[in-house]
């Protein structure tokens, strides 16, 4: 079985998010493109949050080009239109800019290769996604950034596929830990209290919410003192502490210091800046986190080869990741092993 079949029925757009550079994101994209072709799915392709990744031609390691078939819709920077050998019909030069020129929408008339460099922020990415859908794409694949900025707005795509790889560490255990931690924070559970979920849409700054759904928003001056100011108004009636912006290990620790331990409420998992050990130890101590916008991770692709030369045994690697992440399908897109 493949990834795309299930995805296409449920979602209109999928982001591919890499844990690190060379984690195999582009291989994953090509893999999904092939699957889409086999299943006759008309794709829209773009990328986002690119920080000069493709521009870096000197250090560029073997980066596969993207092969697209007739009918595929792409959104890429103007200056990249004539770099590939695919025949492209120009549909629209948008007002959205990128370091490589205005984002231009094209339809593939003659199959061949293309290069993608899409919008640089998630607001533009949403509009580009909608344009691709409007031009007839059945599923939009968004080549996400190597950092978490791309997914920091889960509103851009309905779900994501995460790419991880040996490049993260020479120690396979560390790669598994980092991957598992990343998946855990991305897939933090949606707030169960439906009234809170509804109210959450209105929340903009860090607040404390009690069991009568009263919202107290202290005038917070600095993000450092934020949690302490919030904790000052926490009492036995407090149900949630809502934090906007980045949530660090120190902030979560401060939250656990008080007598009362309300549930931490955040917009989505990408706000959390911690690490595997600290995060797990906090969870063990009873830290409860719920999110307003859960992120759906519908697959994990692994690249057992690091560009500097070392590698893991593909089967073992896939097996270990699978053990750590549970229900999510894990695929070695190079070796074809899937669990």
């Amino acid at each position: 079985m493949g990834l795309i079949e299930g995805l296409n029925q449920q979602y209109q757009s999928i982001a591919i998010v890499g844990l690190a550079k060379n984690a195999g994101k582009t291989v994953t994209l090509n893999y999904l493109i092939e699957e889409a072709y086999e299943h006759n799915i008309l794709l829209g392709l773009t990328s986002t949050g690119r920080d000069g990744e493709r521009l870096d031609l000197v250090t560029d390691t073997e980066k596969p080009t993207i092969f697209v078939v007739e009918g595929t819709l792409i959104a890429t920077a103007r200056s990249l239109i004539e770099t590939g050998d695919a025949g492209l019909e120009i549909l629209e030069v948008t007002e959205f800019t990128s370091p490589l020129g205005h984002i231009t929408l094209c339809r593939v008339k003659e199959e061949g290769t293309v290069q993608l460099a899409g919008p640089t922020n998630s607001k533009d990415a949403i509009k580009i996604r909608d344009k691709l859908l409007a031009y007839g794409a059945e599923l939009v694949l968004l080549d996400g950034a190597i950092d978490r900025k791309a997914v920091s707005a889960p509103g851009v795509t309905d779900a994501c596929v995460v790419s991880t790889g040996a490049v993260l560490s020479r120690d396979i255990r560390k790669v598994v830990w980092q991957t598992s931690y990343f998946i855990t924070i991305l897939t933090l559970p949606k707030v169960t209290d439906s009234r809170m979920l509804e109210m959450g849409k209105e929340l903009t700054s860090s607040s404390v919410i009690d069991d009568q759904y009263q919202i107290i928003t202290p005038d917070v001056k600095t993000s450092l003192g934020k949690v302490n100011q919030l904790m000052a108004v926490v009492n036995e009636k407090t149900k949630y502490v809502y934090l906007s912006g980045a949530v660090t290990t120190a902030m979560m620790k401060a939250l656990m210091m008080g007598k009362h331990k309300p549930t931490l409420l955040i917009d989505n998992g990408t706000q959390i800046f911690s690490d595997y050990f600290n995060f797990n130890s906090l969870v063990k101590k009873g830290l409860k986190i719920e999110v307003l916008q859960p992120i759906e991770v519908k697959g994990i692709t692994v690249n057992p080869v690091a560009p500097v030369g070392y590698s893991f045994d593909s089967e073992t690697f896939v097996e270990k990741i699978k053990e750590a992440v549970g229900d999510i399908p894990v695929i070695d897109v190079l070796g074809g092993i899937e669990r």
């Binding site: 092939e34 086999e38 092969f67 593909s314 089967e315 070695d332 190079l334 070796g335 074809g336």
Partner: peptide
């Protein structure tokens, strides 16, 4: 035998 072929017809086979 677990043979997978890409669009171009390439097969990535694990050494094991």
């Amino acid at each position: 035998m677990g043979l997978r072929l890409s669009l171009k017809g390439d097969a990535h086979v694990n050494k094991s």
